[in-house]
Structure formats: structure tokens, C-alpha cells
Amino acid sequence: MTHQKYYLSKKLKLIAGVDEAGCGSLVGSVIAAAVILHPTQPIFGLADSKKLNNNKRLNLYKNIIQNSLDWSIGSSNAAEIDRFNILQARLLAMKRAVQNLSIKPDLILIDGNHAPKFIETPYQCFKKGDSKIPIISAASIIAKVTRDQDMVMLDIQYPKYGFAQNKGYPTAFHLNQLELYGPISHHRKSFAPIKHKIFHIKK
């Protein structure tokens, strides 16, 4: 089933796409986005945010912000990730994103195999939905750009770790800096490299 076919068969009901960014990072919050695009004003060029270059992603981000019917962000911070585990934190961020919408959708389309339970609104999961369903692609773009911006701000506070470049992911530089300086409060203490102090890359 595609985004476009659902619009045709359901007579332009309001559909929210939901996706997240930052699950594999060692630092910061997992960020989810919910987007309701205008059903008769499509945004062209939507794709999985990870497959877009930075300029294209930023241009689409601005287009989505300006022309969607509604969009919102939900997050789950490092402390919640450590407390609940990354899957539950991811679902919590998604649920918060939907709850933060000012327009109630008729259907929620979610990237991946797992979804939070929405009692009042039907929802469906789609494996690789961010590359197959435009409205989920839109959510993936909002989530990634928002999280990337968070990492740039964190880099200003803690410039030693290269967060603006590595976005908190376990690059060789990030792991080497962890070995030199140790983790900060924003690092996810339950993640293996932090929990087991695996800070160096094996050659």
C-alpha cells in the first residue's frame, strides 16, 4: 500500500507520518517527528533522510515546515533511554510527537516494525517506510534535521567530541575522545561502548 493510494481510497483523510532519528547514537535524545502533509499539495523529492545530501535535506525540511498542515517533535532523553532501553524510548518519542500535533490524524503511518499503542487512532507500521512512503519520509527529514541541530548545539558546549560532525555516532574520533576524556552527562550510559568502556577501535 502506498501513501498516494491510501489518499485516493480514503477520500483525502488526514494521515500522519512518523519516524525517528538518533537510535544508534551514543549521546543525546532520540528525536521523533510526526507530519501531516497537505493531501492535495504534494512535496516533491521526499526520500529517506539518510539518503539525501545536507542541502537537499535542509531545503525539504524548510518546505515541509512551511507547507504541511501540521508537524511536531517528540523526544526521549539519554536518562530515559538508559532507564527504559532504546526501543521503548524510541516508541515514547514517537508517541509524544503524535500527541504534540495540533491536528488529530485519521491514520498514523510509522516507520519500522514496532509502534507505540494509539488507542483512539488506527496506525500501521511499514518496514523501510521512510524510503517507500513520502509522508514517513517527511517525518524522517524533520526528525534528522532537528536532531542534527541538537548535536551542533551540544558540540558548542562540548567541542572535544566532534558532535557537529559525527552526530554522536561511534566514529573512531568519538571513541578516541571518549577514551581520553570519558563520557559527559548526555552520553547514554547503558550503551555498550560507555557501559563497558570500549572506547578504542580495534585495528
Rank of each mutant, 00 (worst) to 15 (best):
H187N: 01
G74S: 08
Y61I: 09
S76K: 00
W71E: 02
I136A: 04
N100S: 13
L175S: 08
K50R: 11
D82W: 00
D150A: 13
V145Q: 06
A143C: 05
P122V: 08
F118G: 12
A115I: 06
I142F: 14
A143K: 01
I110S: 05
M151I: 06
Q149M: 11
N77E: 07
F118K: 14
H174Q: 11
D111A: 07
K95W: 05
R96P: 02
I110L: 05
D150G: 08
K144A: 03
G168A: 04
D82Y: 01
R57I: 11
P105Q: 03
G162Q: 01
R188V: 04
S72F: 07
V98A: 06
I103Q: 09
R147D: 05
F84R: 03
G112A: 10
I184S: 10
H187A: 04
S185L: 11
N59V: 12
L87A: 08
A164M: 08
L92K: 10
I86N: 02
K117H: 14
Y181G: 07
H187I: 00
L69S: 06
F163V: 07
H187G: 00
E80G: 00
L107A: 07
G129W: 03
E179I: 07
C125Y: 01
S75K: 14
Y161Q: 08
Q177K: 15
L178M: 12
K128H: 12
I86G: 04
Q88R: 08
K95G: 04
N176A: 12
Q99F: 11
K104I: 14
L58K: 12
S185D: 14
D155K: 02
S137H: 03
G74V: 02
P105H: 06
S76Q: 02
K56A: 12
L91Q: 04
R188N: 09
F84E: 01
A139Q: 02
A115V: 07
H186L: 12
K167V: 04
P159W: 03
G74W: 00
I133Q: 01
Q165M: 09
Q149C: 07
Y123F: 15
S102V: 14
S75W: 00
K50I: 13
Q157V: 10
I64A: 11
V145A: 03
K117P: 00
R57E: 10
N85P: 10
G168L: 03
D111E: 10
I119S: 09
K189D: 04
N67R: 11
F163P: 14
D111K: 05
S137T: 07
L91N: 11
T171G: 15
I86Q: 03
S76V: 00
S102H: 13
I73N: 10
Y158T: 07
